[in-house]
Design a protein around this nucleic acid. Structure first.
Lengths: 158, 158
DNA sequence: TATTGTTATACTCTATAACTATA
DNA sequence: TATAGTTATAGAGTATAACAATA
């Protein structure tokens, strides 16, 4: 599983992604936030959006969104308000405390990124970021698959 | 969660890693292999190693290793043989069928890598691979943490 | 007593299904 | 009838604990 394959892109990406997520998770844990909560909180602060919109943007199932918001609400960082125009819908907002925590969390995340990227020479850093973008952006070999809105589970079970 | 942070390295790495792993998973599924089984099978083929050694190298818990090997054994791709010198230990070997499947799987994985990396200009491809290596290799900002042999779960439960 | 591997089990995470209320 | 959100629950994956065999 090495020389035979040339550079093991899956291993490189998987390792780097896992380690930075561990770092981010630890840093955010000091603020009692998970990475997902941070992501949802940031979008809630961005403007009044519905649960569904945030879930879609964050690639979360709506039921996972419920759980995540329950936690943010219990922590006093965010809240739901019924939308007056469509009373099925709940708009998500941040509390003052939520804004304060988000600000801290953002600087904590930025510090991690600065530390990691700052360890590379500027040229290499730029090349890395551009290369990753080239992989996943539209037109790249790892662009989002427009088909398959739902990943669908194993075909044999059930 | 964007302009405020500069390039969102966590999102870039996470997205790229997830998508390539989905690709690899789909490609290997056609051979009825999971990525993990492929990884273990490749190491079993590399020489007689114990379950524990393969588990350690693959960052798998020993109980996960048991399940993975059970599946490979049931599929007729690998087997366990007691070690004569230390009869607690089981050496893992591949079957002939296992070697055939591994060969196919290796070419399938290589094809995915070639397709993905081949979509980038050579200079960008090299820069990306080097940059990722610079992040995770020893001395890099995401090098393996020698401390903390076990990640340890949430501090509050149990 | 320590270690390898196994079994049984519990926990976490996430998604499916069924439901409520609105539209 | 269709949709937003909720609840309950089931499934996959993985780890902890207790155990057997051996060192």
């Amino acid at each position: 599983m090495d020389a035979d394959l040339g550079p093991d892109l899956g291993l490189l990406l998987g390792t780097a992604a896992e380690r930075i997520q561990v770092r981010l998770g630890r840093a955010l844990a000091e603020l009692d936030l998970t990475a997902r909560q941070f992501c949802v909180l940031a979008q809630a602060a961005d403007g009044d959006r519905t649960q569904g919109q945030i879930a879609e943007f964050s690639l979360l199932d709506k039921t996972t969104m419920v759980v995540t918001l329950d936690a943010l609400e219990a922590a006093g960082l965010a809240g739901r308000t019924p939308c007056s125009r469509d009373r099925r819908v709940r708009l998500v907002h941040t509390t003052e405390e939520g804004d304060r925590v988000l600000e801290k969390a953002t600087s904590v995340v930025r510090a991690v990124y600065d530390e990691v990227l700052g360890a590379l020479p500027a040229a290499q850093r730029d090349a890395l970021v551009e290369g990753l973008g080239a992989l996943i952006d539209v037109g790249g070999p790892l662009q989002a698959t427009p088909a398959e809105p739902r990943p669908r589970r194993s075909s044999r079970s059930r």
